[in-house]
Amino acid sequence: MSRLRALIALVALTVAGGLMAILPSTAASAAACATPWQSSAVYTGGMQVSHNGRNYQAKWWTQNEAPPGTTGVWQDNGACGTTTPPPGGTCNYPNWAAGTWYATGAIVRYTNGLYYIAEHDNPGYDPIISTWYWDPYNCSGTPPTSSPPPTNPGGFVVTEAQFNQMFPGRNSFYTYSGLVAALSAYPAFAKSGSATVQRQEAAAFLANVHHETGGLVYIVEQNTANYPHYCDASQSYGCPAGQAAYYGRGPIQLSWNFNYNAAGNALGLPLLTNPWLVQTDAAVAWKTGIWYWMTQNGPGTMTPHNAMVNGAGFGETIRSINGSIECNGGNPAQVQSRVTKYQQFVGILGVPAGNNLYC
């Protein structure tokens, strides 16, 4: 009898062990993803990376060959990350990670449990904000469908999430609420023309602002040696706040006593006698930037607003802001800096950049 019990126990253990060995792994037990592959990184034999939902191990030294590659350097170690599929299909793609470089065609699982495919290369932009860079992905294989640009209940074509994405390192002084509060000063700003033109104008304004302030970091002009130069004493009203009081401030770096006087008169603010308002009140700062954008030609032949609304293009906004120094080959690197940021911002807003980008 004892032998029979022992035999039964051995059979039960063998069957149980066999069942455990052949049970398929569940979604919860999928391998964790290794550090994402980077084109600029150098990998040596034994180093592991993840790419498009799979883990790989380098067999020897390699750089700039995306897994699985064509030379045999990468050993495929299988799928990684969550494999829990959304309704409508099965997917096995890695979780999206902010700051990770994604090439066109990359598919990720977002925090909402849905999947997105990169329509353009991007450095980890948020899939539900950057609708030009990402499209929803249906795991059943159905071609992805485009999403319309997100709208903002406040009426501005740039949402707060998009604003934060454009200026991740901004000074806390430059608030989104201050920008929205300033819009009432010029209702036609980013409200003229088609939805595409409105977004292009907002992107153009914010791209120039980004350039002028180092990404909304600087509130005032950094070169203090310039401060005494911005007083034109020949004006009838002079410089009542002091000779060195009219230095650059705000998102467009408003400077000179005559600009403070004109902006103050237009906005109903005492900027000639109290120019410091531009560096202490966020809404006032934004209003001066929009004032210049809507009303001033600068070195150009039209206002930046008219340049965007009437199809002259982004290059003409540069000419109106700093064309005498940057345009016509004066400083092509500065022009390129503005253009690059504009191209990034229209991408975030989901519209094309249009023509005539340079001046």
Rank of each mutant, 00 (worst) to 15 (best):
P87A: 13
H120S: 03
P24A: 10
I107Y: 04
A106F: 02
Y125H: 12
Y102R: 05
P127R: 12
Y110E: 03
W74T: 02
T82P: 15
W101K: 04
W60T: 14
I22L: 15
W96S: 01
Q38S: 12
P136A: 04
I128T: 15
N122V: 01
V42R: 12
N112R: 06
G99N: 13
A41D: 09
A66Y: 14
S29Q: 13
W134P: 05
A58I: 02
G72I: 03
C33Q: 04
A58L: 11
R54D: 02
A16L: 14
G113M: 07
W74M: 08
L7S: 04
D76R: 14
A27L: 04
N112M: 09
I129W: 01
D126S: 05
A32I: 00
N64P: 00
P85Q: 04
I107H: 09
T26N: 08
I8E: 00
Y110S: 07
T14A: 12
V15Y: 01
Y110H: 14
I128A: 14
T131C: 13
R5L: 13
I117D: 02
T104F: 02
R109N: 05
T35H: 12
Q75Y: 02
P68M: 03
A118C: 06
V11K: 00
A97M: 09
Q63R: 09
T62N: 15
P127W: 01
M47A: 15
A66I: 05
T90A: 11
R54G: 01
Y93R: 12
D126F: 05
N64L: 01
H120Q: 15
H120L: 05
R5Y: 10
I129V: 14
T44L: 11
M47T: 13
T44H: 03
A27R: 04
G105K: 04
W101A: 13
G88E: 06
K59Y: 05
T83V: 10
L7T: 08
L23R: 13
W101G: 03
H51T: 05
P86Y: 00
Y125A: 03
N55D: 04
A66C: 03
G45L: 09
R54Q: 11
N122T: 08
W132D: 06
S50T: 05
P123Q: 06
G69P: 03
Q38E: 10
N52K: 10
L114R: 14
A98E: 09
Y133C: 11
Q48N: 10
D121Y: 10
